[in-house]
Amino acid sequence: MELLIPNPGLVFWTSIAFLLLVFLLSKFAWKPILQTLKIREESIEEALKAAELAREEMGDLKADNEKLLVKAREEREQLLRDASKAASMIKEDAKADAEAISKRMMEDAKVGIEAEKQSALAEVRSQVANLSVEIAEKIIRKNLENDKAQKALVDEFLKDKSFN
């Protein structure tokens, strides 16, 4: 039974020690500890939320990138197509130009050649005429070196020319 009767001295000291401990710890231990824990929990919560947000943003960004990439690809193809078109056009033009030039050159050449030909022919003609004259002269001169020949010729002429 003795065990069940609280000793006033111990009650006194326990009350003092415990209440002092409650006061001390509330002020110097629990307050900073609980505050820090709360702050940490809040910051963890926030960090998690931020991570979620970042993930969503990342997803959006990725989708955007995909879209941009598709667009860029299309643009590139368009550019390539345009470029090849332009290139073929330039080629065609160049080809046509070259053809025209060459044609003109050919024509010019033909004209030139014709002119040359004509002049050469004229030359040849005059030369031939001269030569013929010279040859004829020489021949005549040769043929008519003696009087007999001259007489024969005159006879010939006279023979041909009928005075009728």
Binding site: L21, L24, L25, F28, A29, K31, I33, T36, L37
Partner: peptide
């Protein structure tokens, strides 16, 4: 009393 106050006040210091 000494043990508990030492333990928790020093822990609180660490938190600070």
């Amino acid at each position: 009393f000494a043990l508990i106050s030492w333990v928790f006040i020093s822990i609180a210091g660490k938190y600070k």
